[in-house]
């Protein structure tokens, strides 16, 4: 088989099964008269390896959509399948199981201030006790080196810059080989240079490991990394 043929088969196999398949998602906060509907009939499919940016003004519902996909909120209406699991009507344990396969990157890095960069990344493997300690240490160090922090393994968050801390957070999100990355404005708290670095690293690692990314962003400077841009307005996907 030629390289092209392999690529084709690969594409066929993977394109048939979306990583995220959402249809008819509705979501509202509050109850009774105070109910405020945030999402209206949202449909969204994301294919393996795809980098999708989710843009829109504040209040457009993009972060809510991200929390639903990440299994951080329970869905009440609509159909949602993430990594082959149905999330609508899923119980707490099922949500936790899905979350463990997702790499999360938040606007705030939220690293544990009492652990070093290395320990923050190694911590993830507490959820994967089958991985041996030596391998945990090797993979954490490799991942931190991949995000350009090979010289700062034993630094505490308090002695790192914002960009460095966000890169540790990326290493933490990627070290356990997630099948999906969800990122919420990872560059919002960073200056343009660090922001660019962070996004470049994210893009490169996602491509290398063939991991799809769904990223919420306001930042026009990073739109070029996307395969596709989804724009939201008032709880609906408009393009």
């Amino acid at each position: 088989m030629s390289t092209e043929a392999i690529a084709e088969t690969f594409d066929k196999e993977t394109t048939t099964q979306p990583v995220i398949a959402a249809s008819g998602l509705c979501f509202s906060y509050g109850t009774g008269e105070l109910t405020k509907q945030i999402l209206f009939d949202v449909d969204l499919n994301i294919m393996p390896g795809e980098i999708v940016l989710l843009t829109g003004h504040s209040g457009s519902g993009k972060t809510t959509l991200l929390t639903l996909i990440g299994g951080l909120r329970t869905l009440k209406q609509g159909r949602l399948e993430v990594l082959g699991r149905r999330l609508d009507g899923a119980d707490k344990d099922a949500l936790v199981q899905v979350r463990r396969q997702i790499g999360f990157i938040f606007q705030a890095h939220n690293l544990l201030d009492f652990l070093t960069a290395r320990a923050n990344v190694e911590l993830v493997f507490r959820m994967h006790p089958e991985v041996r300690r030596a391998e945990v240490q090797r993979r954490a160090a490799e991942m931190l080196t991949a995000v350009g922090l090979g010289q700062r393994l034993d630094y505490y968050p308090s002695s790192m810059s914002g960009g460095q801390m966000q890169r540790v957070a990326i290493a933490r999100a990627l070290v356990a080989e997630p099948k999906l990355i969800l990122a919420d404005e990872p560059t919002a708290a960073l200056d343009s240079k660090s922001g660019r670095d962070v996004v470049n690293i994210l893009q490169r690692l996602a491509r290398e490991h063939h991991i799809p990314i769904l990223m919420v962003t306001h930042d026009d400077r990073v739109l070029d990394i996307a395969d596709r841009i989804v724009h939201m307005e008032d709880g609906r996907i408009v393009s």
Partner: peptide, 18 residues
């Protein structure tokens, strides 16, 4: 003082028990 960090750990899949 560590609530955001703990919430993050829960978000990435750690259980309450942990």
């Amino acid at each position: 003082n560590h609530l955001p960090q703990y919430a993050t750990l829960k978000a990435i899949g750690f259980t309450d028990g942990f």
